[in-house]
Simulated scan of single mutants.
Amino acid sequence: MQWRPRLICITGATGGIGSALAMEAAKAFDRIVLMGRSLDKLQMLRSQLPSSCAVYLVTADLEKSDDITQAFASISKEVGEIDVLINNAGIGRFLPFEQLKREEIERMVNINVNAVFTSTQAVLPAMMRRKRGHIITVASQAARLPTPKATVYAATKYAVLGFSDALRMEVQKDGILVTTVNPGPVQTPFFANADPDGTYAEKMKPLMLERTALARSIVGIVGKRRREVNKPWWMHVGAKLYQGAPSVVETLFSKQFHSK
């Protein structure tokens, strides 16, 4: 690590991956900012973190760009400039496209995509001025290997993957690192909303990633030049095969793709 980050910010901190990220970041760094919608949940999370880490709480509705902008302005003024932004917040809904409600589509786009754009744009100027920083965005293997009933979710994750790849080239000259994290299914409450009948979650349960291990992997690459973190390895291999021969993979694994 060429520099030790002084301030880490995690969005969607009270979610499954987010809370695990908060715990691992609090062990590794001295100051972290946790951002989420519920102050009560943020306070409960802070009470579980090591006292050796200074933890700052910021509430924001990540569906609203103005809320996000104001939250980051408050952090800059009251806490300091952010060295590492972990765009972690994300939601999903696994249904056939024609059954998705308009508000469900808009919510996925706002939280999974627009919040990433707004948050990143809020911290970039200070990073560019200091010639250092790290933007880490949690995308998904769904961006590499889309499946039925994940049409909009896959599209939102594909969007932030493309955004990160382009941004990486833009800010490389400014000493800023850009990393995407592409996990497969993770053992979190995410599926309570994404898959309310539990069918997909039950089928994938034996293959799900453990969230603490994933969070440890993410925190471990802070400040390091990593293009992507892909978990699990076998799903990453499948995504690579899909990119090379999509028709073949879709034919061979049609049954598995329709397992949601």
Rank of each mutant, 00 (worst) to 15 (best):
T11I: 04
S140V: 10
M1R: 15
P183E: 10
I10M: 08
I218A: 10
D61W: 03
E98T: 09
P232D: 13
V160N: 03
S259A: 13
M204S: 15
R129G: 06
M208A: 05
H258W: 00
Q48R: 10
T120E: 09
V109S: 07
Q256M: 00
A150F: 01
I8P: 02
I111A: 02
K77H: 15
T180Q: 04
V113D: 08
A215M: 08
G133P: 06
L177R: 09
R226Y: 15
V237G: 10
V113K: 04
Q187E: 12
R4A: 10
N112F: 00
R4H: 07
I10D: 14
L34Y: 13
P189T: 04
G15R: 11
F29L: 06
L42W: 09
V178N: 11
Q141Y: 09
I86F: 00
V181G: 12
G16A: 08
I136T: 12
L252Y: 05
P246Y: 04
M44N: 13
D67R: 04
E250T: 02
N88I: 00
L214E: 15
S140M: 07
A155H: 11
N87H: 02
M1P: 10
I32Q: 15
S51C: 01
T14R: 07
L39A: 15
P196K: 02
T251H: 05
F191E: 14
D67Q: 11
A166R: 07
V33M: 06
W234S: 13
A115W: 03
K205T: 11
A73T: 06
D67P: 02
A139Q: 05
Y200A: 14
H134V: 01
R31H: 14
I82S: 14
A60T: 08
R102A: 06
P185L: 09
Q187H: 05
P196Q: 08
Y158R: 12
L45H: 10
Y56N: 15
S254L: 00
T137Q: 05
P146I: 05
V181N: 13
A159S: 07
N88R: 02
V248P: 02
D165E: 15
Y153W: 06
L62A: 04
I135Q: 08
N182W: 02
K157P: 06
V171Q: 11
K224T: 14
T147A: 12
D195C: 03
D174W: 00
K260Y: 12
L124W: 02
I91N: 10
E98R: 05
R132I: 01
V116I: 06
V55C: 09
F190T: 06
K255Q: 13
P246D: 14
E78N: 15
